[in-house]
Amino acid sequence: MTTTATWTVDRAAEELLRREDTRTDGPPLTDSWPELDLDTAYRIQDETLRLRLARGETLIGVKLGLTSRAKQQRMNVDSPLVAWLTDAMILPAGAPVPRERLIHPRAEPEIAFVMGRSLTGPGVTAATAICAVDQVFAGIEIIDSRYRDFRFTLPDVVADNASSGAFVTGALGRDPGELNLALEGCVVESGGTVVHTATGAAVQGHPAEALALAANTLARRGHRIEAGWLVLTGGVTDAVPLPPGGYVTTEFTGLGRITVGG
């Protein structure tokens, strides 16, 4: 059993990447490191990104996690978080879920922004955030966790890059001014059965609020959202398990339909 005294930011980052690379889950860091706080967890997350870039991945954007009450209640946490996206997480449209590198995948619908301009906090509002968006897409994030049974505290999941796994975006890009994103409806089907419905208002009241939150959170860590980046604004509904052979479909009112599985 790892003890509190043996944990460091570097070692925690290496351990989480080792679990990811070997498809091995384990206990939350806080089981043996109860003093782990959010600031340290974000340092672990940033060190994990540094290791990803060192092995050839490219930073392409950010993702938000736990932005909806449904997700917060399921995971027993009470605050959203921000994490990194790299090109290694891209799932091409129509490609099967890469089960060979995932432990226990779950799918959740997302509203995704492609940034037309950079966005630098602090003080970013939803109104200024949405003005920096070039296009809006439907998305599905395939979340995974390096913690057994998805059991974690908020610092644990921050350190684990917000349960990042893979993601796919739809083919239809829309101008944000063409849509009422708070009212953008979403229907989630698993195996042909409707399991969740929601609107974009489930994401912090409006997905642009989540984008502003990301910019302001990153500013406190010395980062900004860059032009050209993709931003996944967080699950519109709770996540749906993706068993082998299973399929999940999300259909948005104005952003189209995506199916993942296999």
Rank of each mutant, 00 (worst) to 15 (best):
106 R>M: 09
141 E>I: 00
115 M>S: 05
46 D>Q: 14
51 L>E: 09
98 P>F: 02
156 D>A: 11
222 G>I: 02
244 P>M: 02
106 R>Q: 07
208 A>I: 02
35 E>K: 05
33 W>K: 10
91 L>V: 08
239 A>M: 12
185 G>W: 08
35 E>P: 00
192 G>C: 00
43 R>K: 09
193 T>V: 08
182 A>K: 06
215 A>V: 02
69 R>S: 08
155 P>H: 09
213 L>F: 13
74 R>Q: 04
208 A>F: 08
218 L>M: 07
197 T>I: 04
87 D>K: 15
71 K>E: 12
230 L>H: 01
82 V>D: 09
22 T>H: 14
122 P>R: 06
262 G>H: 10
34 P>F: 14
50 R>M: 11
36 L>P: 06
125 T>M: 13
169 T>W: 09
131 C>W: 03
169 T>A: 08
97 V>T: 07
59 L>M: 12
52 R>H: 11
7 W>F: 04
91 L>F: 08
16 L>E: 02
117 R>V: 04
221 R>Y: 09
240 V>T: 15
222 G>L: 11
27 P>Q: 13
43 R>F: 01
233 T>C: 10
11 R>Q: 00
113 F>D: 02
38 L>S: 14
205 G>C: 07
208 A>W: 11
223 H>M: 07
168 V>D: 01
40 T>E: 07
30 T>G: 05
29 L>E: 03
206 H>K: 03
100 E>C: 03
85 L>D: 02
7 W>Q: 00
191 G>E: 05
249 T>Q: 13
246 G>E: 10
76 N>L: 13
11 R>P: 00
170 G>I: 03
71 K>C: 10
60 I>F: 11
88 A>S: 12
187 V>N: 01
153 T>L: 08
132 A>G: 03
254 G>C: 12
256 G>Y: 05
20 E>A: 14
66 L>T: 14
183 L>F: 03
110 E>A: 05
213 L>E: 03
215 A>Q: 01
217 T>V: 03
98 P>C: 04
249 T>C: 10
200 G>P: 07
25 D>P: 13
235 G>P: 09
39 D>S: 13
245 G>R: 03
67 T>A: 11
105 P>T: 12
183 L>M: 10
49 L>H: 06
252 F>V: 05
241 P>T: 05
151 R>G: 06
26 G>T: 14
221 R>Q: 06
33 W>M: 07
32 S>E: 09
79 S>R: 15
73 Q>W: 05
124 V>C: 10
38 L>F: 06
18 R>S: 07
232 L>N: 00
98 P>G: 02
139 G>K: 03
39 D>T: 10
184 E>W: 13
139 G>Q: 10
197 T>Y: 01
23 R>C: 15
112 A>D: 02
166 A>L: 02
31 D>L: 15
47 E>P: 13
241 P>S: 06
175 D>H: 05
161 N>C: 06
236 V>P: 03
152 F>V: 04
186 C>R: 01
220 R>F: 07
9 V>A: 05
203 V>E: 07
183 L>E: 15
10 D>I: 04
31 D>W: 15
77 V>N: 14
227 A>P: 02
85 L>H: 08
1 M>Y: 14
